[in-house]
Amino acid sequence: MKDLNVRQEAIKILEEKAGKNLFDFAHSNFSLNTSLEARETKAKMNYWDLIKIISFCTGKETISKTKRQLTEWEKIFANDILDKGLVSKIYKELIKLNTQKMNNPVKKWAKDMNRHFSKEDLQMANRHLKKCSTSLIIREIQIKTTGIRYHLIPVRMANINNSGNNRCWQGCRERGSLLHCWWECKLVQPIWRTVWSFLKKLKIELPYNPAIALLGIYPRDTGMLFQRDTRTPMFIAALSTIAKVWKEPKCPSMDDWIKKIWYIYTMEYYSTIKKNEILPFATRWMELEGIMLSEIRERQISYDFTHMRTLGDKTDEHKEGKAKII
Score class of each variant (00 low, 15 high):
residue 103 N to D: 12
residue 119 K to E: 12
residue 161 N to R: 12
residue 107 K to S: 14
residue 79 N to E: 09
residue 248 E to C: 08
residue 114 N to S: 09
residue 3 D to C: 05
residue 26 A to N: 02
residue 267 M to K: 14
residue 208 Y to I: 10
residue 147 G to K: 00
residue 135 S to D: 06
residue 140 E to L: 10
residue 243 A to L: 00
residue 274 K to S: 12
residue 161 N to S: 12
residue 30 F to M: 03
residue 81 I to M: 09
residue 286 M to T: 13
residue 277 E to I: 11
residue 72 E to I: 05
residue 247 K to R: 13
residue 115 R to M: 12
residue 212 I to K: 03
residue 281 F to R: 03
residue 92 K to G: 03
residue 315 T to W: 07
residue 168 C to Q: 05
residue 144 K to W: 01
residue 266 T to E: 13
residue 200 K to N: 15
residue 250 K to R: 13
residue 130 K to F: 06
residue 267 M to G: 04
residue 63 I to C: 03
residue 278 I to D: 07
residue 214 L to Y: 02
residue 169 W to V: 06
residue 64 S to Q: 02
residue 49 D to I: 02
residue 288 L to D: 09
residue 155 V to C: 09
residue 33 N to F: 05
residue 71 T to K: 02
residue 309 R to G: 15
residue 300 Q to M: 12
residue 44 K to N: 03
residue 155 V to T: 11
residue 147 G to T: 07
residue 270 Y to G: 09
residue 70 L to A: 11
residue 106 V to F: 12
residue 110 A to S: 12
residue 28 S to I: 05
residue 193 R to E: 14
residue 121 D to F: 01
residue 19 G to N: 01
residue 324 K to R: 12
residue 287 E to S: 14
residue 58 T to M: 08
residue 191 I to Y: 03
residue 62 T to K: 07
residue 32 L to G: 04
residue 135 S to E: 01
residue 202 L to N: 06
residue 266 T to N: 13
residue 167 R to W: 07
residue 67 K to A: 10
residue 310 T to D: 14
residue 25 F to A: 06
residue 231 R to Y: 11
residue 209 N to L: 10
residue 239 L to R: 06
residue 191 I to H: 05
residue 139 R to E: 01
residue 108 K to P: 04
residue 326 I to S: 13
residue 297 R to K: 15
residue 3 D to S: 09
residue 101 K to A: 11
residue 258 I to F: 06
residue 114 N to F: 02
residue 62 T to Q: 03
residue 78 A to W: 03
residue 113 M to Y: 05
residue 298 E to T: 13
residue 202 L to Q: 04
residue 49 D to H: 08
residue 122 L to S: 00
residue 109 W to E: 07
residue 118 S to R: 08
residue 301 I to N: 03
residue 225 L to Y: 06
residue 58 T to W: 07
residue 79 N to G: 04
residue 320 E to S: 12
residue 224 M to E: 07
residue 290 G to N: 15
residue 248 E to V: 14
residue 133 S to R: 01
residue 96 K to L: 11
residue 209 N to S: 15
residue 202 L to T: 00
residue 85 G to Q: 01
residue 157 M to V: 10
residue 162 N to R: 13
residue 294 S to H: 13
residue 65 K to G: 02
residue 318 H to M: 14
